[in-house]
Design a protein around this nucleic acid. Structure first.
Lengths: 341, 341
DNA sequence: CTGTTAGCGCATTCAG
DNA sequence: CTGAATGCGCTAACAG
């Protein structure tokens, strides 16, 4: 018994007014055009009884605006926590009565073009172009209103960017150790000691290192990992332990830290009793490890939120061309760092 | 210099034909209506040069079909791997030239209604109603073409369901142990031994238990967890080890297994040397643990894929009312099970 | 204060 | 084989 959708014409007829009047009332412009209170109530009541809801497709065609935005990312599969970016965007969108199209390009420019087109053809009001790992991207031409999420444009494109504040995160991590009284025998696992010793294309690595070094914390040494995976963290830490005796480790992300924990355990070293560990990302496992890992969180949820906020601000002309927004990375103090006398 | 979108009228003019002709050619119906090859080529060329792409909003209004489907789930935040369901749906949708709206209801029925409306107002062709943990859900009325993903309707609604085959997964887990020669001292962590001893609302728990018991594997004992979190797995396994000496553990999911690993390590027991461990879910961490965890995978990606396949099959009238599709859960053989003499 | 008219971009009868 | 006319559902000038 599912009924045909009720249209504005149905509403108008039921309320005994013209379509224009019905439209005016429904769009809330009845007041200013001084439509009689009486008529207004009649229309509102009829709308309620009939369960009238405007056909958004028609409105979109007519007004050119669809209250819909597109979210296209390269990959979400590898980094499961990145889903929180979508969640943040989703909520911010919902608060504005906007829906989200999502698409994944798998890093394939051809596919990306296709997705962008499919969205533009559906008249999205704007686009969020997201990367799952912070990096630079080439912005497609004619993309229309858009923001870059977790990415910087190269070459410059005038689009605003939202990125985690990795440099400040580096400082935060170092400060956690400094505040705990760690001044010596602090080693970095995952990259360093120079800014050249980093995994390929990792802006996170270089910015985190920069931040760490800015605090003046003395780095006793570092081990690069070709990739930030647990086994590499394990190998790097094992290698380090072969001829050094760290009192603290800064792991460049949580997966590396998993490996470090394992290597430490193998060497009979306890965390944080013998060695304090700080890390980055706040991957869900960070709070599943024993002891729970103190880490500087990637603010995925906030990033996603900010992206839609900036997108709308931009459409309202409130943002500078090329402006970049850095979202703070909060420290999650847990159990892997202990104060040294 | 971003140009106005080129419309069908522009195309027609450029090709020197009527809008009708242009439309016919572009929709591929030129052939059957015997439009001259010459004219056809002219239109096609013009379309290519102008970069003509039909305005999907207009097509949607005109035809009533938008090549868009809605994906609304309760929560994706807690279970990060569930993002793979979206990924599967996304790819299957893309293969069909369909876009996906996504929305999260946070389990709030009011919010869910709102999302559903927002999607229906945008004339989606169908809806995927997803749950992040397999469970039963009440299907909203007037939902239109829809499928249930990772959920069963209660009461019955006639909608098709896609769920993981948890019972067979239970059998698989038990068989892994049986095949490895485990016949005694096998304990279950997370639920059991009866079907009443399960975390609230967990269909996975009861179905996994059913499957395990069907194989005839002798269960020496079991420990329930109020919730499948690492700390509960840890506590349950500690309690078990206080007065039992297991040779194998079936953990009801990977997070529980993390806790079990820890408890085993504390007790000086090695995996798999002293104790074999099988689990469920194939959470990303399963392959980060040492030794790598053998587990029966939740086929999130496949579930998402299947959902859009079934949705389309259903719209084509190819599925029985209320039909339920069980997606196999594959065993990931890794390093936590060893053969017993 | 309200109704008439037009048109967003497209697909589709119906005549030539 | 092709063009003129219609309408999807809605908003917005413009009159009354």
């Amino acid at each position: 018994m599912s009924r045909r959708r009720v249209t504005l014409a149905d509403l108008a007829e039921a309320a005994g007014v013209s379509r224009t009047t019905a439209s005016l009332v429904m769009t809330g412009r009845g007041r200013e055009l001084r439509i009689s209170h009486d008529v207004e109530q009649r229309v509102l009541r009829a709308a309620d009884e009939l369960g009238y809801r405007p056909n958004a497709v028609s409105v979109g065609l007519r007004t050119g605006t669809t209250r819909t935005i597109g979210f296209v990312s390269d990959t979400v599969a590898t980094s499961h926590l990145a889903g929180d970016m979508i969640k943040g965007a989703l909520e911010a969108a919902r608060e504005r009565g906007v829906m989200l199209f999502i698409g994944e390009s798998e890093g394939d420019p051809e596919l990306e073009r296709g997705l962008l087109h499919a969205m533009q053809d559906r008249q999205v009001d704007g686009i969020i172009l997201a990367a799952m790992f912070t990096r630079t991207i080439k912005v497609p031409k004619d993309i229309g209103p858009a923001v870059l999420l977790n990415a910087l444009p190269r070459p410059a494109s005038g689009l605003p960017s939202i990125v985690p504040d990795e440099i400040e995160a580096g400082r935060s991590a170092a400060r956690v150790l400094l505040d705990a009284g760690h001044h010596d025998e602090v080693y970095v696992i995952g990259a360093g000691p120079t800014l050249q010793d980093v995994p390929a294309d990792s802006v996170a690595a270089v910015e985190r290192l920069i931040g760490i070094r800015e605090t003046g914390l003395k780095i006793a040494g570092a081990r690069v990992c070709p990739d930030w995976q647990p086994e590499h963290g394990l190998a790097a830490t094992r290698a380090l332990l072969a001829d050094h005796r760290p009192r603290a480790l800064i792991c460049l992300n949580d997966r590396v830290a998993i490996g470090a924990y394992q290597a430490l355990a193998e060497a009979g070293l306890s965390v944080p009793g013998d060695v304090s560990v700080v890390s980055f990302d706040d991957h869900p496992i960070a709070s599943w490890m024993w002891p729970k890992l103190t880490t500087v969180a990637l603010p995925h949820y906030e990033l996603g939120r900010k992206a839609v906020e900036v997108l709308f601000a931009q459409m309202a002309g409130e943002v500078e061309p090329g402006q970049v927004f850095r979202v703070p990375m909060p420290v999650r103090h847990r159990e892997s760092v202990v104060a040294r006398a």
